[in-house]
Nucleic acid binder design. Sequence first.
RNA 1: GGGCCGGUAGCUCAGUUGGUUAGAGCAGGGCACUCAUAAUGCCUUGGUCGCGGGUUCGAGUCCUGCCCGGCCUACCA
Length: 676
Amino acid sequence: MSRRILVTSALPYANGPIHIGHLVEYIQTDIWVRFQKLRGHHVVYFCADDTHGTAIMIRAREEGRSEEELIAQMSQAHQRDFAGFSIGFTHYGSTHSEENRELCAEIWGALRAADMVVERDVTQLYDPQAGTFLADRFVKGTCPVCRAPDQYGDNCEKCNATYSPVDLIDPVSTLSGATPEPRTARHLFVQLEKMHEFLNEWTQQGDHLQPEIANYLQGHFLREPLRDWDVSRPAPYFGFEIPDSPGNYWYVWFDAPIGYIASTQAWCKKAGEDFSRYWRDEQTEIHHFIGKDITYFHTLFWPAMLKVARFNLPRKVHVHGFLTVGGEKMSKRKGTYITAETYLQHLDPSYLRYYYASKLGPRLDDLDLNLEEFAAKIDADLVGKVVNLASRSAKFASKTGLADAYPEDGGLFARAVEAGEQIAEAYENCDFNRAMRLIMELADAANRYIENAAPWKLAKQPDSQESLQQVCTVALNLFRQIAIYLSPVLPKLAEQTERLLGTPIRQWSDAGQPLLGSAVAPFERMLSRVDRKEIEKMIDASREEEADRGTQTFEDSDQPLKDEPLAAEITIDDFVKVDLRVARVVAAEDVAEARKLLKITLSLGGDERRTVFAGIKQAYRPEDLIGRLVILCANLAPRKMRFGVSEGMILASGSGGKEVFLLCPDEGAQPGQRVH
RNA sequence: GGGCCGGUAGCUCAGUUGGUUAGAGCAGGGCACUCAUAAUGCCUUGGUCGCGGGUUCGAGUCCUGCCCGGCCUACCA
């Protein structure tokens, strides 16, 4: 029976790039979605950018642009990254949308009608200079307990004491450096306790949660009265103003999950679908995939809100663990904070999809990315076992095509059909690592078959051509089964298999019927082995992108300064004569006759282009530069060089030769912006 | 401090309701093969299942204490 399934991944915050930690979730969800589609179910998959809150407001302010501009750009970057990893959303929306505003109002109305909203005064620190209330992490000061300086507003890292930011000694706003003052404002609270009984039942029954999550909620929150939830923030705040409480805004965590519904609705409008079938129809199964850090919001507040507003409740909330790299938290200093973008510049996304699949289970254990294991696993499993099946048999078969009748294969095909049910069950339960193990067993069996059948021997005997065709028919059909079973994880491999065998893969049950009598295209390489050097480069690039701002000591040499002492003092007027601009490298080519020069075309935004000859040939490859942002001295007099006119200078440090380091602006900068 | 989840071969992990000599993949060693991206196949080395008690005819599997690790939490969760 065909199910109707609505799936979501958590909404990434529009304050930073997607990194490989985020991707655990999106890849996990996407695999599950693709699997369900392959099983013939009707599946829609929604996500959106989470765009509200103080952090966004502050950042936009720092960057001197509107919040809308900031979130539009982040959304674009996020969607590009997701597309790069073949994450197939049905629709990718934004919490800053009209649909979301209306839905927030609707749910809010329901909470009011249920008499669950109360008002209370809350005292918070207020930054008079920045004109905003300060969340705990925007305040620093001296710990009132142990007197350790420079501690955040909620707890002390030295003595582990917790306190209110109001108790900090000598508090300082990290936004403006001003001394914040306590101010009192009216906040709106949702009385979650009124839903206690419902939540007891919902969390503990009906397999909505993994058992450890249900235990955790039971022992942690549900055994005592649920506290009121503060869902409002006073202006200024980037978000939606509460219609019946002017000057107050919904807290970002109120409107964020509603974004799931809003994204659905935006898609329904676009696609002409009936919205009520998805969130107001019990026949639709709703599945949320989230990280364990946001369990609380998704398993208590969220079902309560849905219940009160009479939306569908989640069929299941799937919680996963965090990513560690090499057994440790991702670290910018160690180069293990790898963004999706950086990864894609160096490695094939299929690698990560498979690696994560091979490590993901139904429980919320943390998942470790061990880069040596990563490389070994891809090489051994995907290249050595799976793709190898096609690559060692397709060549023989492309001359003859597949046999018309399926040959005797010792029961291999039938066993793989049987295994397919176990594999499907593993996928269904999010036990992807089990699914991968089972699939690899099939690949082992298929390789063994080819080894014994020795098609390369048959190929040398003119009277064995029929046997050869039969052997290849078996081998390629076993390969195709595996490609089908792997297709939720490796959609690209599935496409390549379709091309090789000239037949589309539409559903899981395609693995049950052998392909016969069809042509076999010439074999093309499907997947390359992992280039270890690219892994190193990726780590190096991640390390360079952002140095750790932590408190470790630095031991930089004083030699560079000795080599080139400071220049004579200048005035600000001297400085502003130099017009430095952000520019994007749109083309870069080798100047063959030159020892040091690359010819680089820069964009200053719009149609504005500059051609610059830069002496960085020994340090950078042209293809690595394209797309990068650099700093250009834009009002330098043009200079004739042997190979053309150079219209500016790209800023870099270093002694020359291989020791050249380009300056590049932080993310968010736009070509044409002046550097002040 | 409290809670949750783990601790099984060098590494990553399986081990169903307690039951005969504890498994797989990778890595290591040996052999074979040469169709394939130095791929594949066969054989093989390797574990007092964190430690100590207990229940039982019998425990990696149940109970208990301890040690270690990860994460969550300590009143805008």
